[in-house]
Amino acid sequence: MSIKLIATDMDGTFLRDDHQYNHRLFKHLFHQLQKHHIHFVAASGSSFPRLAREFQPYIDQMDFISQNGSVIHHGQQFLTAYPIEVTALERVMHILDRFYGPQDINQLVVSGPTTSYVDQTMNDQNFAVIKLFYEDVVRVPDIRQVFSQYPDEQFTKISVNFAPHINLNKVAAVMDGYLPPSLIIENSGFNTDLIGNAKGTKRNALAVLQQRLHLADDEIVTFGDNENDLGMLAMTARSYAMQNANPVIKLQAAHTTAIDNNHDGVLKTIEQLLKNDA
C-alpha cells in the first residue's frame, strides 16, 4: 500500500453542509485504513475539542490539525502549538477596531490550544454557532482585555466572522498592510478569516506529522475546498479539491473529487483509492 497518510479538511470537504458525515461508511473505511497502517488526519480551522467530539470513537487512533495548523494533536496527546505574541494580538484588535465596527463583525473569537473566548455581549444565536465550531467556549467581560485576564494562556488564533456586506478580498488587502510580519490571515470559508502565527498553517502542521512518520510526499493524500487548504494541497501529487470547491482551488489541486461534500465525496474517493492501491 503506497498511501500512508490521508489528511482532510472538515467543513465543506469531509462534512456535509449540515455538519454531519456518513458514520457507517467512515467506520468501515477507518477499519480498512488501520488494517493497511494508513494514518487519518482531520485538518480544520475549528478547535481541537470540536474535532475530538466529531471523532470521539476514533480519537486515540487519529491525528488532529486544528485552528488552521496552529495546534497539533496525536490522538489526545498535545504535540505542539504556534502561539501569537501578546503585542501582535493587541495589534490585531487595534486594526479591527480602526477599520470595522460592530455592524461589520458578527463573531470575534480568540482561542488558545483548547479553550476559546468571546465577548459576553455576543448574542445567543452567534454564540450557538461558535459552540458548534469551537466546543469549549468561555464568555469574558471584554474580549479586548482577554490577554491580560488570562496571562498564562497561549493564544493561538483570532477568528473573525464578517457580516455579508464585507468583502473578504478587501479585508485581506487591508490586514496585509497592517499586520505584523509574524502573522498570517487566511480565508476559512463562511465569510470568516483566521489570523495567527505565520508558522501555524495546515501545510506546516502536516509537515510536522510527515516528519514524525518519515513519509514521502507521494505517500500522502489531501482533501480541501478553500484557500486555507491550498498549502496542504500543494504538498502532494495526490491532492483532491472537492467538486464543490471554488474553481481557483480546483486549479491548484492535482485532482478533483467526482462527488461533492454533501454526497460523501471524501469517503467515496478514499474507498476508490483503497481499491486501486490494494
Rank of each mutant, 00 (worst) to 15 (best):
V86I: 11
D193Q: 13
Y82F: 13
A237W: 11
V41G: 05
N22G: 02
I158W: 12
I184T: 12
I185Y: 06
Q120F: 07
D119P: 06
A198R: 14
N187I: 07
D225R: 00
Q76N: 08
I59L: 15
F48T: 03
S182G: 15
T87Y: 05
V221L: 15
V41P: 03
G265T: 09
M242Y: 06
Q77Y: 08
H165C: 04
I184N: 07
A172G: 08
I84V: 15
Q149T: 15
N191Y: 00
P151Y: 15
S159N: 01
E271G: 06
L230K: 12
D142I: 02
E135A: 12
L273V: 07
N261H: 05
E271C: 13
L274C: 09
L33K: 01
S182T: 11
D104R: 04
T201S: 13
L25P: 09
L96H: 02
N187D: 09
M235H: 06
N22W: 03
L267D: 01
R212G: 03
F190K: 00
I72L: 12
S148P: 04
V71L: 02
F99N: 03
L96A: 03
A52H: 12
Q61P: 01
K27T: 13
D9Y: 00
N161L: 11
H73G: 05
P83Y: 07
I259R: 12
V174S: 03
L108Q: 02
L96T: 02
N191P: 02
I84C: 07
T192Q: 00
H36A: 11
L215D: 02
V86W: 09
Y134L: 01
G45D: 04
I184L: 14
D136Q: 13
L230P: 05
F30A: 05
I72E: 00
V160E: 01
V110G: 00
Q20I: 08
H19R: 09
S111C: 07
L274Y: 14
V160R: 01
